[in-house]
Every structure is written in C-alpha cells, then in structure tokens.
C-alpha cells in the first residue's frame, strides 16, 4: 500500500489586482480584478512506504504548496490525496501523529526554552509514552549529535544546530512520513553533510518515507532515490534518480585550464557552460560528439594546460530538464 497517494491534485489561488492609474475613489471603492493562478495543476503520484523522494522544481513551481496540501495546511481546489491513509485537509489532527514536518524557514521549537524542554512538551502533545520518549530521544540525540546542545535555549543555537534540533523534534513521535521543505537551507557544508547522512540512515533504519523539497542538488543526490520534477504546477518527470542520471547522462562536462586568457571554443554538440580567465567548461552532448573528438579539437585549437572530464552534474541535469520543458512549451 502507498504511504502517500496523490490523484489529480490542484491548487488555484485567487489574486486580486489593484487598478493602476485609477482615481483614489476608484482604488478605494472600485472592484478589484480577480484572477485565478494555478499553483499546482492536476499532479498525480504515489510513494511507497520507506521511499525517499525529492520533489523539485524552480521557485514558484508548486513544491511547497503541494507539501502544504499533503500536510493538511492548504485545501486543494480539486483532486484527492491520502497520506498514511488519511485525507490531510479533513483529518489533520489524526494525521499529525503519522507525519513529521520541517519547514526550513520556520521553527516548531519554543525559542526561549532549551531544546530539551521543547522535546518534553512535544512528547506530551503527541502523547508519547515516557519510556518510548526516553528511548527515542536518546537514539535521535545520538544520531544527530545534539547531546551538547539540548540544554541551551534554542535562540542561542546556530542555524545548523537549530535545524538538527528541528528535525529531531519532527521525528520524536515516530512519524511514518516526513515532509522536509528546504531542510538544509542556510547550513554550511559540514552541517549539510551531517544532516543528510543522519536523515538517510534514519530513514533506512526505521523505514520512514521522506518527501523532500530542496534547491540544493546535494540533498537530492545524498538522501533520495527517486525524483519528481514539477514546474508551473505540473509534473514534468517522475523517475528513479539513477535512471534520471542515465537518461540525461548523455552529457559530459569537460573543464579546461588554458594558456589563453579568454579561451573560446565552438563545435557541434558542444555547449559552453562556463568561461572565465584561463578557464572553460564545456557540456558535451554525446549523441552529437564524443569526448575524444572534443578533447582532440580542444587540444588542437587551444593551449590546454589541464583537463578534467566529469559526469554531468545533477545541477546541470535538472537545469536541462527545465530548459527542455521551456523549449517544448515555446514550441507548443
């Protein structure tokens, strides 16, 4: 049975616009024009228990709106969803025991209290039996290495420390499904790596379903095994991460360090991804040109001092997906 089942889910927001240039009376008493904006448009997908899925898209794609519908905050305009067997917007409070939510920009901890006191309070609110709470808190404190932090008031913690406490708070009641909205936003490289590692390990150990939105492809690559891409509220793609890499892996990246200060290179099937002083990064479409051909051409036309050949980065893969969709939309 699916942990999460979404069927033709839509959310339209009504936007009121002011009449530009109208008189003061017109602006005060005139009718505002209203129009409907589709934030999410008939998306469908299912996620099995224990899956870790990245839900990605550019800003305004509808990711957070979908997450808010699935956690019961927003009502959909149409469609249906079941999360852990509950309809989120109708059975919000019963669902609360089954899900954990982390919105990176917001806190569920009491800022003036030490994190431990927030955990105690949440344990009562979620009615966690004392023995279970003690055992679970010990495991989470160990996993997220927050033992030295939990006696400090939350307001004194750094962002990375607070985020680890936030995630512990969201996992304390043993949710079966966790929604993570930008969980690593604002964290430094080390804190991100630790958080990803702990989340992945915990999800594996406890068979927790994870639905994660992030603009950081590192989160996706390190935590998730499947990717759902949305843009303009519509689902573009739903694939295992490995398949996505294979499918879009027809690209390779070649980075050249050159003797020329402003190197230039042109060839069929080759796109300049980045250029700088004595540096050039090329994207090679393997269906048009091979790496050998490009390297040979580059060595022939440039004074190459160093050369690195890489798999296409997930960032570039995702960028390409968006570009393909924009191009298709342009042709349509």
């Amino acid at each position: 049975m699916s942990a999460l089942h979404v069927e033709a889910l839509s959310k339209h927001f009504e936007i009121a616009t002011k009449q530009e240039g109208a008189s003061l009376a017109g602006r005060l008493f005139g009718r505002r024009e209203r129009h409907s904006v589709a934030a999410v448009n008939a998306i469908s997908f299912a996620i099995e228990a224990g899956e870790r899925v990245a839900f990605i898209g550019p800003n305004g794609a509808g990711k957070s709106t979908t997450l808010k519908m699935l956690s019961g905050i927003l009502y959909p305009s149409a469609g249906h969803a079941e999360v852990a067997g509950y309809v989120p917007w109708r059975e919000r409070q019963a669902l609360a025991y089954r899900i954990g939510i982390v919105f990176g920009q917001r806190s569920q901890l009491w800022f003036h209290l030490p994190a431990r006191d927030s955990f105690v309070l949440l344990a009562k609110i979620y009615d966690i039996p004392p023995a279970t709470y003690v055992r679970r808190l010990a495991a989470l404190v160990e996993a997220f290495r927050i033992g030295h932090l939990i006696e400090q008031p939350v307001r004194q913690l750094s962002l990375g420390q607070r985020m680890r406490c936030e995630i512990v708070a969201s996992l304390l009641h043993g949710p079966r499904i966790v929604f993570l909205d930008e969980p690593t936003i604002g964290l430094d490289v080390t804190a991100k790596a630790q958080l990803r590692e702990h989340l992945k390990a915990l999800s594996r150990q406890e068979d927790i379903t994870v639905l994660l939105t992030s603009h950081d492809t590192g989160d996706i690559a390190e935590i998730c095994e499947r990717v759902i891409v949305i843009n303009h509220g519509e689902k573009l793609l739903d694939q295992p991460l490995a398949e996505l890499r294979r499918h879009y892996g027809r690209q390779k990246a070649i980075t050249l360090a050159t003797g020329e200060e402003t190197p230039a290179f042109a060839m069929a099937g080759v796109k300049v991804l980045n250029s700088g002083r004595h540096q050039l990064q090329l994207g090679v479409d393997l269906e048009v040109a091979s790496v050998d051909q490009v390297v040979a051409a580059a060595l022939g036309s440039l004074s190459v001092q160093d050369l690195v050949i890489e798999e296409a980065r997930l960032d570039d893969v995702i960028k390409q997906i968006y570009e393909d969709q924009e191009r298709e939309a342009g042709h349509a």
């Binding site: 808010k68 956690s71 019961g72 905050i73 919000r92 409070q93 669902l95 609360a96 025991y97 899900i99 939510i101 919105f103 920009q105 917001r106 806190s107 569920q108 609110i125 979620y126 009615d127």
Partner: peptide, 18 residues
Amino acid sequence: LAGQVGGLITRPLPYWLM
C-alpha cells in the same frame, strides 16, 4: 506574522486549545 500558524495547526491539538 511569522507564518507559524500553518505549522501549529498541523499539531494533534487544535491551536486554540493549545
């Protein structure tokens, strides 16, 4: 103002009761 209400209404107890 902090946009916390969305998170608070997804708790097991209604916000008003808490």
